[in-house]
Design a protein around this nucleic acid. Structure first.
Lengths: 326, 326
DNA sequence: GTCAGTTATACTCAATGTGAGCACAAATCG
DNA sequence: CGATTTGTGCTCACATTGAGTATAACTGAC
């Protein structure tokens, strides 16, 4: 039971707080003010220390951390991942020792969270423009694939085979097509292929390729990686758990529900089939009330049907297909 | 950027190492030797300190930790969950401060791991007898449901409604039936209902209900909870990732593959349909070779088809149905 | 008030996937 | 040899899904 001397170790919590407003997926960000060697124009995810005195549990801590920065209450909360790689936090370089961050995912209705001065809601896809396929395959993907091919060609033979498979799986150039769920895989691939701005920031260099500047807004620290983890998780969860309802008010139209799913998954869905699925699955029940301001025929207001949890094994939007080629 | 004084904090890694042999799911365990106030007959999951000097990454650490206890190499490895609740580790009571554990899941072919003196492979279902439905609905479930009903009846009205739903969802008494994936939900429910031995150990009491002794072997610390997390994760993963192959040798018969899936999921599958699915999905390819010692007609040997990763979005055993009532 | 525009909702059809079972094939064991 | 065991091919009914057509119910312009 010998244990090495504990060196300096900081434990932080990070929150990926997601909402959907105006059909757009948003993430709560703060300013990384006063942190060493961090570009002050960058945004960061809400974060704070895990306080051993105050926080009996991690969940408690994440609620407090977010509350301190927004004053609001979180709905759905779930642990995402723990990050501990050496060198992942610039504080390590100024002698703070090692920084370990435990990331959480939280879903809220944006309306319910007031934001403090330095907090703001940002469009998720500003950080991952290649992840938004709602208007068809983003043109950006062509440039990415071209650049990845160049990267592959420069690799030694054996490695090239492995990485080519990876590229095909991540970007769906094979028959499998686009898998919305693989957000993190794609981010990490692009990072390794030196196409992500943070790759160059981490090395105190400036990117040689102009494409890097097109591949989304960078974030402070490794927070873009954490956000990618969160977005991937919610996309996966959508398939088998009724998480979309966490982002909606009590009653909503089927179009609103569909738009939440589309915003998160980055895909467009066939409207009639979505409706058929969601009604037959028992996920919702009509209220009889109608929503006026739709611009056309008024839509019925629905509410989430809790009983579905007892009736279906994996209640979610099982099949998330990418849109057909236009 | 003020940060409270860091109190004593230990960071451990835990490994849930799973294998399947003889159609049984096994978990690698060690003896929790020399730990304070831990019954020495109990088994624990392999664990060790996260060493800030030695371990640049958590993955590195988990490989080293397991290697130290077995000498073998891990195949598939994935982070599970980070546990940090106050009071979860008895070392806290002897002044060690707070213990934070990062748990990993690893899959291996049992043959590939030699075990050291105090390590051993145990049957997973020895810890969760209610999770094994391969011979139909375990009779134990009746006793569990009876006991849970008694627990529900003792709850105050409002709470009772909430918990009754939870019981129904966990144990499939509603229409949804049994969801193999909810291993952790069930463990936590049973714990809260005071039916898990660890509940009483944690409180230095002895269980009033004899049923507690039927509900599986207890483990040291909160390791049974961690194992439940791991088993749930692998059951979920089975549906959309080809993880079963991590537990098999390079070539295998379809029956072996089916038995791995059955062992992990705790369900029995229709043989012909399983075969149809697995062949048509492109998950495997025949080798032309035959396996002799089957006891009947020799079976063809198959191998995993890597190309499936490029061809299918979520290659796994999508539909895991519980067996029909016999 | 009519008509174009817009959104909601109902229904059809073909293709595919899934649960369940029957039947036959190819080995082993006495 | 026949009984037993395991593997493999096939069928059938049924549910689910992708895609499209058609109709309903509102708004605002004129």
């Amino acid at each position: 039971m010998d244990r090495p001397e504990q060196q300096a170790l900081l434990v932080d919590l990070n929150a990926v707080v997601l909402a959907v407003t105006g059909g757009q997926p948003r993430v709560l960000t703060v300013s990384p003010a006063d942190y060493p060697s961090v570009e002050q124009t960058l945004r960061a995810l809400p974060f704070g220390p895990f306080d051993l005195e105050r926080d009996r549990t991690l969940e408690r801590c994440i609620h407090e951390t977010v509350a301190r920065q927004t004053g609001g209450k979180l709905g759905f909360v779930e642990q995402l991942y723990t990050f501990a790689d050496k060198g992942r936090d610039p504080r390590e370089q100024v002698g703070a020792g090692r920084v370990l961050s435990i990331a959480y995912l939280a879903l809220v209705q944006e309306a319910l969270l007031e934001t403090a001065d330095d907090a703001s809601w940002e469009d998720c896809y500003a950080y991952f423009p290649w992840e938004d396929w709602r208007s068809g395959r983003p043109a950006l993907i062509d440039a990415i694939e071209k650049s990845l091919r160049a990267w592959l060609d420069a690799l030694p033979g054996k490695e090239r085979i492995v990485q080519r498979d990876r590229v095909e799986i991540c970007f769906g150039s094979g028959n499998a097509g686009w898998d919305a769920y693989r957000v993190l895989d794609r981010y990490e691939l692009l990072y390794e292929a030196k196409l992500i701005a943070e790759y160059w920031v981490d090395r105190d260099q400036s990117p040689p390729e102009p494409l890097v500047n097109e591949l989304g807004q960078p974030m402070a620290f490794d927070h873009r990686r954490i956000l990618a983890t969160g977005l991937g998780r919610i996309r996966g969860k959508l398939r088998y758990r009724p998480v979309a309802f966490e982002l909606l008010p009590d009653t909503f139209t089927l179009l609103q529900l569909q738009q939440v799913v589309e915003a998160l998954s980055g895909l467009t869905l066939h409207k009639q089939n979505f409706r058929r699925f969601v009604e037959r699955s028992g996920l919702v029940e009509g209220t009889g009330l109608r929503e006026g301001r739709t611009g056309g025929r008024p839509a019925e207001l629905f509410r989430f049907r809790r009983a579905v949890l007892r009736e279906r094994r994996a209640p979610g939007v099982a099949s998330l297909q990418p849109p057909r080629e236009a």
